[in-house]
C-alpha cells in the first residue's frame, strides 16, 4: 500500500447525499478479477450518456457534460467533496478502487457508510469527516473558485485552505500509523500469531464444535 503523508490537489464535487456504491461503480464492472482499471468507469451512469460495459472503449462514449468530472476545471482532481452517508450500500471494495484508480485519494464528507469508510483505509485513501456546515462552506468556496485546491496533511491532521485557513480533522491512531507508513495490516496481524493461537486454544475448550 502506498504511504499517505500530504496530498495537495484539485477538489471536485459529488454534490448529492446518500451516494451508494452502485453509483460509484456499477455492478457490470465487478466481473473483473483485478483490483485496477476501474477509474474510467467511476460514476459510470452519471459520467456517460450510454450504458457502460466492461471492455468498452470509454474514449468514444458520449459524455454527460453536466457532470463535474467531465468539466475542465475539475480535471486532475485528487480530492472529492461529498455529502452525507457517502458510500452506502454494497461492501464492494471496487468502489474505493475506482476512486483511487481515477486519482482520488481524499474524500471529505459529513458522514460515511461504515464498510466504505473502512475499505478506503485499506487502499491508502483518506476519508475525512467534517461537520455539515464546514462541508457546505467548502462546497461554496470550491464552486466560487475554479481550480480550487486543498492541502491535506495527515501527520498534523490538518486541511489547509487556499486562504491559509486551517481545519482540523481526526483519524484513529492505528489507521493513521498504517497510512503514514504504507503498512500492510495482514503483516502486522501475523506478528500477533501467538495471541491468535492462544485464543484458539482457549476457545477450543469452550466451543469445541467450532474446531472439530
Amino acid at each position: 500500500m502506498e504511504a499517505f503523508t500530504v496530498q495537495k490537489g484539485i477538489v471536485a464535487p459529488m454534490d448529492r447525499a446518500n451516494v451508494d456504491t452502485d453509483l460509484i461503480i456499477p455492478k457490470q464492472f465487478l466481473k473483473s478479477i483485478k483490483r485496477t482499471g476501474f477509474g474510467p468507469n467511476l460514476f459510470d451512469t452519471l459520467r456517460y450518456m450510454d450504458e457502460g460495459q466492461p471492455g468498452m472503449d470509454n474514449s468514444n462514449r458520449p459524455l454527460n457534460t453536466d457532470f463535474p468530472l467531465n468539466q475542465k476545471r475539475y480535471q486532475g482532481a485528487s480530492i472529492l467533496l461529498a455529502r452525507e452517508n457517502f458510500g452506502c450500500g454494497s461492501s464492494r471494495e471496487h468502489a474505493p478502487w475506482a476512486l483511487l484508480d481515477y486519482g482520488i485519494r481524499v474524500i471529505i464528507a459529513p458522514s460515511f457508510a461504515d464498510i466504505f469508510f473502512n475499505n478506503c483505509f485499506k487502499n491508502g485513501m483518506l476519508p475525512i469527516v467534517q461537520p455539515g456546515e464546514v462541508v457546505a462552506a467548502l462546497f461554496a468556496e470550491m464552486y466560487a473558485a475554479p481550480g480550487y485546491t486543498l492541502e491535506i496533511d495527515l501527520e498534523s491532521e490538518q486541511i489547509k485552505k487556499p486562504s491559509g485557513e486551517i481545519l482540523s480533522f481526526q483519524v484513529d491512531p492505528f489507521r493513521k500509523h498504517c497510512l503514514l507508513n504504507g503498512l500492510d495490516d495482514i503483516g502486522l496481524t501475523l506478528e500477533k500469531k501467538d495471541a491468535i493461537f492462544a485464543y484458539e486454544a482457549e476457545r477450543r475448550k469452550i466451543t469445541p464444535w467450532l474446531f472439530s
Binding site: 464492494r92 475499505n119 485499506k122 496481524t189 501475523l190 484458539e200
Partner: peptide
C-alpha cells in the same frame, strides 16, 4: 457482517478481523 476484499484477504490469512467495537 459484510467486509471488503482487503478484509477478505486479511481473514483468509489471519482468521481475524481488525475493527473497533460498534
Amino acid at each position: 457482517q459484510g467486509i471488503g476484499t482487503s478484509e477478505v484477504e486479511h481473514v483468509l490469512a489471519t482468521q481475524c478481523l481488525l475493527q473497533k467495537k460498534m
